[in-house]
Structure formats: C-alpha cells, structure tokens
Design a protein around this nucleic acid. Structure first.
Lengths: 238, 238
DNA sequence: TTTTACAACTTGTATACACAAGTACAAACC
DNA sequence: GGTTTGTACTTGTGTATACAAGTTGTAAAA
C-alpha cells in the first residue's frame, strides 16, 4: 500500500504500539502481536511491520526474541539519570531553591560551543541564563543553560526563580523533552565555579554537559552543570 | 544469497563499514557509497544494505539524508556506563579490555557495606572480585563487585577476563537485570586507586556506587566503581 | 544573464515471496 | 516417569521489484 500525503504506514504502526504501551494496554513482559498478526491488522507485509518493530526496539520499548516474539520492556519515558526531578525526589524534606544568577537573554551561540549545532540553530541564536540550586541553603548545582531561540515568545520575561524549567516550557509552549544525552566528568573546580558553589578551589566537582531534544524540531536545550557532591550525591534509578 | 554457518551478510556490511570509519578511510562529513553501489559490491539487494545502514545509524556512526546519502558523523568517545546495559555494550568502536585484579572468591559481606542487605543476602554471603577496564590501553574504570552467592554454581571458575558480566550470567544462569540505582560523587583518588588508574594522587575521579536487582529474588549485584575521566567521559542517553 | 525545466542521481516507503532457525508444547515412544 | 520427536508457532535473513520524493548539476528557455 503506497500512501501519499500522509504519514508512512510504519510510523503509524510505531505510534499505535507506542501509545498502547504508554497506556499500559501492554505492560512490561507482555508479548506484542506477532509480525504476521500485525501484517493482517494493517494489511501490509512483514518488511513494513519489521521496520516499525525495529524502531520500537531501538527506542527501548521492546526487545525481540528469536522464535518467541516482541517483549515489552520499559514503559517509562522518564528523563533517566540525574534529572532534577530525581534530585528533588531524593532530597525528601529538605528545601531545594533555585536562584537566577544571570537572567535569560537572547544572544549568539558561543563560538566554541560544546555541542555541534545545525544551521537553523545557528541562525536563530540562543536564549542563555544561569542558575544556582541550593539544598538547605548549601549550593549544590551551578547550571548554564542555552535554549534555541525558536518559537518561545516572551520567554525572556518569564520568571524562572524556584520553578522547574521543564514544567514552565511545557505549560506555556506545550514543549516536551523527547530524548537526551549527557556526558559526565570529574573536574577540579575553577575559581569562579568554586566560589559560586562555596567550596575550596580544586575541590573535585561533577561536570555534566547535556543536550535535551524536544518535540519541536531544532529546539534543543543545552546545559553545562557543575555539582558539588560534598554533602549530597547524584542519584539515579532505572 | 542465503548463507548458513556464517555471519549474516548485513552484519558483515556493518562490520566492514564500521572498520572503514574507525580506520579513517571515511572521515566525518564524508559520504558512504550509495545504497546501489553497496548492492553491487556485496551482490545483494537494497533491503539488506538498508538493514546494515540502519544499524550504523542508530550506533551513531552515520546520519542519513534523503536525496543525498549516508554522512559519516563524529565517532563517540563515551562510556555508556550509566545505563544498566553495561560498559561493554556502550563503548562502540574502541578496544575495551577487562583485566581481573582479584579473581572471584566467596566471602562474607564487609561489615560497613555501602548498601543495606536483607537477611537472605547476609546468610548467603557474597562473591567478590575486582576488575580494571582499559580503553585502548588507558585504564579508565576500577570496579569492585559483590554478588549475592545464590544459585550461581561454578561461578568462581568462570573466566571473566574480557567478557561482559551481564552476558555471562545471562548465558549461564539465565539471569537478567531488572532494575537498579546508582549514586555518583566526584572524589579525589586515594593512593591505591590512583595508582591502578595511572593518575596522579588527588586527581578528580568519578565514584559510583550501584545496586542492580535481577529477576532472581535476593540476587543483587553491587559495585563500587572509580572512573578516570581525563581521556574519556561517562555517557548516557535517554 | 537569469530563470526554468529536466535528467540523473540519492534515500524513503512498500509489495510479495522464500527459506532458516529458535521456542514451546503435545504426542509418541522407551 | 522421563525422553525423543514432530508440529506449529515465532523472528531472522534474504531476493527481486516498484514507485515516491529530496538533491544537485546542467541544458534549454526567457
């Protein structure tokens, strides 16, 4: 079935199955319908169905087992490791405060930016701001954030003090985080960062660089984060 | 061309192209031969070639552009340790070697163990071993592992040199990792660890403690890991 | 000279089929 | 009871083909 002016069939299969998994119609451990069953359902051939299942596999929704079937693995689509919600969840009764050090401004990307940017991003420029996050008044995270300046009207006037950035952009612009990656190093803090985090110079810090891709094309969120792990640690569940 | 007793053709195509990229026969920005060219080279059809190119795409080796071709991208230098698929799965093209420092032995849990243990675990004791993992002969990870001594016959005699622990326990005992948690700090390396990782004393290291729960009740895998992030970094996708 | 149209390339999507090989279970056998 | 074998399922690998659609350079038209 060749289709014009519409989304490809294999993508529709992916969307349908993904939705079923997200809606818990299939839960972890369940078998999806067999390839041949799906062929009948969608009136197509195995090549197309396999293209869809292959997509779901490397999205982490299913694992496939020769002779057995497609097994649903992880219905969770959370942010995984070290997301700030994770930090928030891990600190219990203590108070997490977020302080804006540099208010969001529109500017060009730094020339030596830590991720590669595409033409659209370069052309649009970025919104930049820095924040300091404290737990019980101990500074724990220093965060420099760059967001592609794309479809974010009046972002500069938003107040980001003590609120979740993700929640803000979700509520105001209906933007979701789709995927992301992060890199982690242990580094010695330099003069500026050590002072902000109130630790001795050369105290070891966790340095993370992350790229979060959203459901809007070319709209990405980049951040460089320094963590003081003297009193607290970063935690992750999977 | 149907082939028996040998690796599938599409995997051979992946290996060949991957090797060419690793050996810099194609560098970042280059175009791979077109699908039709590859069809002629390997005397096969586009479906098979596309299966290979699709594999390379989600390994991060290439990106594909409609109407243009397959573009070689930046090879990644991350460790991929932060997800539970394990280090071996996350490293890609470089050579990861694993050296056993202390061969696995049955022993009691340390008194000041870093996670809380239940009665069954305490009663059964643990299997303990340490490993040093190197990428291209640079030591990057020092790992102390404790596994509950439960339903693991002959584990002590298994050779863990240069193999994936998860794969080993999956193949021999059909044990899967179900869930896990990890904690992360930046620390200064002490004398022993710094020496093992071949860095100066007080060089900042990433220290992780993880607990992995398996599909077997009370069978958990605990590890304390030190990472030298001078040459490589830890990487995570979500 | 500038614009348009086309040809020749590229990857994207899809059909239709065939045989290999792993899994699970039940029937037949010892 | 325990083992072997067969069968019907599953996914894995592969051939052969067709048309859609994006990209790029060139030749023809304005």
């Amino acid at each position: 079935m060749i289709r014009r002016d519409t989304i490809p069939l294999y993508k529709k299969v992916i969307d349908d199955l993904k939705k079923s998994i997200d809606d818990s119609k299939y839960i972890k451990g369940d078998l999806l319908p067999s390839e041949n069953d799906l062929c009948k359902t969608y009136n197509t051939t195995r090549v197309t169905i396999r293209q869809a299942l292959s997509g779901l596999t490397n999205m982490g929704y299913i694992t496939r087992k020769h002779g057995k079937g497609s097994i649903v693995t992880e219905p969770k689509r959370g942010l995984g490791i070290l997301s700030f919600s994770g930090v928030t969840a891990g600190i219990g009764n203590q108070t997490l405060t977020t302080q804006i050090l540099q208010k969001q401004t529109k500017q060009h990307w730094p020339l030596d930016f830590f991720y590669e940017l595409n033409e659209v991003e370069l052309k649009k420029g970025c919104l930049y701001f820095t924040r300091l996050r404290q737990i019980d008044n101990i500074p724990v995270l220093y965060e420099e954030t760059y967001i592609t300046n794309l479809n974010l009207p009046r972002f500069i006037s938003k107040n980001l003090e003590n609120v979740s950035l993700f929640k803000t952009i979700k509520e105001h612009y209906n933007i979701d985080i789709a995927t992301g990656e992060q890199k982690i190093w242990a580094v010695n803090g330099d003069k500026q960062v050590s002072k902000l985090l109130n630790v001795k110079i050369a105290e070891p810090l966790v340095h993370m660089k992350r790229r979060l891709q959203t459901n809007v094309k070319d709209l990405n969120i980049y951040s460089s984060i320094y963590c003081n792990t003297q009193e607290y640690f970063l935690q992750d569940y999977f």
